[in-house]
Structures are given as C-alpha cells and as structure tokens.
C-alpha cells in the first residue's frame, strides 16, 4: 500500500468530516465519512497494513471529537478485523457490498459508542438542590440514524474511492508495502 496516498486520504476524510458534518446532519446525525474510508482500506489493503491504517484513522478521529480518546481507534480496529476477514468473499465493486459493509461497520461502531456512553455517560449523574438528575447518555436513535445515513451514502463514496484504487497500490499480502 502506498502510505503517502493513505495519509492524504486520511487527512482529507477527517477535514471533510469536520467541515461537512454540521451541514449534513439529519435529526442530529451526520454520516461518518471516516468510517467509509476505513471500509475502503480494509476491503482492499493487505491484512496487516489495513489493520494499522484503520487503527490510525481512528486515532486521528479521536483527536477531533469530544469522545474519549481511544474509542474510535478501538472501534475501527474491530471493524477492520471484520472487513479484512470478508475480503475474499465479497464483490468489492458492488454497491450492495458497500451498503452492507457500511451497515455492519456502522453498527459495530455504534455499539461501542453506545456501550461507552452507557458505562461512562458523557453527562454524569448529578444532584441539584437535592433533586437527583439522571445521567445523560448518547441517544440510540441518533446513532442508529447515523448508521443508516452512512450506509446510504456508502455506495456513492465507496464507489468513487474504488475508482481511485490504483493510486493506493493495493497488492497481495506477500509483496512489501512501500512509501511512494
């Protein structure tokens, strides 16, 4: 895999996610474009490179969110493990593959986000004048909307990325990765 192309794609995906997410929001949920890049890498790159690349994308995304650091890194690592395992059995160019992979990957990510929000709620339980205020957690409906939204966008984004596959120099696992 060409790491320079990967770095450019990672940079662009995070930057576009930051810039676009407020404007693409539907019922407070915006699509996770970085997750689509994770799927693109994981479905095409050799196993080790894919796992590392997806994990690093998660690390990057952790730096530009209020979420706990490590949450996206871990989630994308698990997503990569799943998608890499399906490399040999899926038709990589088909829109239905993109849609289904995005749906499953989105559900995996949402599961970890919600699990984290349930274990360590962002708005912890508090007391106000003797009144107990329950913890405020992430809304499952918002996360599920995000999953569906991301899955619907996936055929377009992944379709476009698949057309640019040659710039990334994905190759068989036996050949070594190179920087350029």
């Amino acid at each position: 895999m060409r790491w320079l192309s990967y770095i450019l794609l990672a940079y662009l995906s995070i930057a576009v996610q930051i810039g676009l997410s407020p404007y693409l929001a539907y019922h407070e949920a915006s699509p996770n474009l970085v997750l689509l890049v994770v799927i693109f890498i994981a479905v095409n790159a050799p196993r080790d490179a894919a796992l590392l690349a997806c994990f690093l994308l998660g690390v990057l995304q952790d730096m530009v969110t209020q979420q706990q650091p490590g949450l996206f890194a871990f989630s994308y690592g698990v997503v990569a493990l799943f998608v890499v395992a399906t490399q040999q059995v899926v038709y990589k160019e088909h829109p239905l593959t993109h849609l289904s992979l995005a749906l499953v990957a989105g559900l995996i990510t949402a599961f970890f986000l919600l699990l984290h929000g349930w274990v360590l709620p962002p708005g912890a339980k508090a007391m106000d004048h003797g009144v107990s205020l329950p913890a405020v957690r992430l809304h499952p409906t918002v996360e599920l909307t995000r999953v569906v939204y991301t899955a619907l966008v996936a055929p377009f984004v992944l379709g476009a990325l698949q057309r640019m596959k040659r710039f990334f120099g994905f190759q068989a696992a036996k050949r070594r990765s190179r920087m350029w």
Binding site: A15, V16, I18, G19, P22, Y23, M63, V64
Partner: peptide, 21 residues
C-alpha cells in the same frame, strides 16, 4: 493526553464548511 491538532485540518475543512454553509 489528546493533542489539539484541529488547525491542521483547517485548510480543507474551513472552505468545505463555507461552501456547505
């Protein structure tokens, strides 16, 4: 321990946000 690197993405995300807005 989370570094603040948001400015790194500004050259792309700022124009994208302006156009999207």
């Amino acid at each position: 321990f989370s570094p603040q690197i948001q400015m790194v993405f500004a050259p792309v995300s700022r124009p994208v946000a302006v156009v999207a807005g």
